[in-house]
Design a binder for these strands. Structure first.
Lengths: 219, 219
DNA sequence: TCAAAAACAGGACAGTCATCCTGTTTTACA
DNA sequence: TGTAAAACAGGATGACTGTCCTGTTTTTGA
């Protein structure tokens, strides 16, 4: 804990391997992709080793067990993905509703041009792992929680600006995340993004409530 | 195809085993439960045999492969579960909105007294299997489709009775199913049903739109 | 009653799985 | 430069996995 080593832990030279971050990053990349595409149980350590071009010794050095690897994927990658595609955009948006709408539309557009739907990384892993192991479950629940928290906070910010007076922040956030997650489930199963559009339009119609049409924009 | 056997295929005597439906039913029971609780890949054939009290030969006689077993669970059990807990109640309900609300509330209440959340059977299997195999995917997508269809049909029935004029049946159905599925995902991950209640109340508030409060009930 | 088919028993099989082991190489730091 | 730790190589291992096979029992239909 205490730094008694003459107080100069400066790095002398950077690594000069071809891989700037080492093999840990490469393994995480491959594992994230595989867990997303095929799931945890369907992705074998052997497959991951082969695809990452990494030997068993190397993999085991960085991640002692498969569970440790998955936990790292969840905490480092899945959490970051939710932060990047949802939390940050909502924070930046003009309002909570506009943020939710924009993310919904952006994801739908991206999937449409991509041609196939692999589903939400958080949801995919949550379904497979949250009942299998308490550590998995808690890590995944925390991400869901932060996701809803960010949307609820945005509603509260809107309310401090005089808007959204009749909206319950927690309930709105729960509805937004649930609708997105469920719509992605169906889109993945049907391999069709139309249900995403349907949900977005139903949300806009229904949840925007009495406002018939907004002709003025926020500064 | 043609019945040329003197046209008398009458059954002579019923089975007199202790199990009225035979072992096929027992295997399906155990598999349905296991796939729901632990998932497809995490449930081994050996486990299923042991829990069902069935030998390998018997299991293989009724279901040649694990995939065949899972397909049977999906088509016979999961579809029936959706029909029983969602489609039939919605059809019986006074209106589409009331039906959706009632099912949502009933499931939430049931889970609250049950103490833990295992999630929606359809969603659980859909996430794990829909990308793994086209046969799985199509079977699961059909169930989702029938589910939404039933809700959309109910909206159309409401509309023929003069109600729900401004509601798009398909979009409303997509929103209802997506919200439920997503809420169940979160409830399962958090092992907490509060998010289900939040989603239900947000749906009631938002989607019911201009109607502030309904003081009169349908006959 | 009798043959054929279905239902079931129980183990064999080859393959895969995650993990762990002992070496060797590379890096960090004094 | 010397040394200890970290990073990596590559195979060994034993426990499962799903499937299939050969018998035996029970049921079916005429």
């Amino acid at each position: 804990m205490s730094a008694e080593t003459t107080a100069r832990p400066k790095a002398r030279a950077k690594k000069r391997t071809n891989d700037p971050e080492g093999m840990r990053k490469k393994v995480l990349d491959v594992a994230e992709e595989a867990f997303q595409a095929r799931g945890y149980h369907a992705s074998s350590m052997g497959d991951l080793m082969a695809t990452a071009g990494v030997t068993g010794g190397a993999l085991h050095h960085h991640f002692a067990t498969k569970k440790a690897l998955a936990l790292a994927v969840i905490e480092e990658r899945v959490a970051a993905a939710v932060e990047e595609t949802w939390i940050a955009p909502v924070r930046r948006a003009g309002s909570a509703r506009e943020g939710v709408r924009a993310v919904f539309a952006a994801v739908a557009a991206e999937l449409e041009q991509q041609g196939f739907v692999r589903g939400c990384p958080l949801n995919n892993l949550a379904h497979e792992l949250s009942l299998a192991d308490p550590d998995f479950r808690i890590a995944l629940a925390d991400i869901f929680s932060a996701w809803r928290q960010a949307i609820a906070d945005k509603i509260r910010a809107d309310q401090q600006a005089g808007r959204e007076q009749g909206t319950d922040p927690q309930r709105f956030a729960a509805l937004a995340v649930a609708t997105y997650s469920g719509a992605m489930s169906m889109a993945k199963t049907a391999q069709d993004t139309r249900v995403l559009r349907d949900c977005l339009m139903a949300l806009e119609q229904g949840v925007t409530r009495r406002r018939r049409r907004i002709l003025h924009k926020a500064p």
